[in-house]
Amino acid sequence: MSYREKFTGELQSLTDEVIDLGVLCYDRLQGVTNLLSMDDIEPARDLVSGDVEANRREYNINSQAVTLITTQAPVATDTRIIISSIKIAYDLERISDNISNLAEVRKRVKITNEKLLLRLRTMEQLASLMLKDVYAAYLDQDTSLCKEVYERDEDIDSLFVHVTTSDIFEDSDLFVSGQSQLCAKYLERIGDHVKNIAEHVYFVITGEKIEKID
């Protein structure tokens, strides 16, 4: 096998690792807001401890990327794939952290406000769809889908603004409403990280930064 073939294989395994981490985060995200209203606290505890795996995988991606940079002196698309793998892995790891933070909230309080839960659930689903679509955008090398995902973060942002400025907390006690606001913040951050990933994927494909559509 030529060096170039070996290098191509190693690049492929690097991107596969990033995709695996993405799938792990996607799975962790599913139903995270349902935990907040659950009577049983165990699923939340399990979710928190699952973060270790995401950290381990991020570390592996980084060390593989470092090895490729030092041994292959990559250029052009190869460089973009390696650098973006590091960045995407970081964003995914942060998404996983925020999922754990959401689960941590359930260890402290149980949220019963249905109005609020509905909004949080919507934020979760929006983020989850963005993550799914950014993966599809990578597979199909679809730049317009990258842009779309990038723009869709605004939906989560406006829900966040809505949750934090509306009167849906009026009945709750102060501690519970504080914790609820944190949940909204964590979900909003997850949206931001997926938005970043869309930017990185766009960069891998085009070598350029996403121009905001006005």
Binding site: Y3, R4, F7, P74, T77
Partner: peptide, 8 residues
């Protein structure tokens, strides 16, 4: 060019 500079 891409293929050449990246050693393909």
């Amino acid at each position: 060019t891409e293929d050449y500079v990246s050693g393909r």
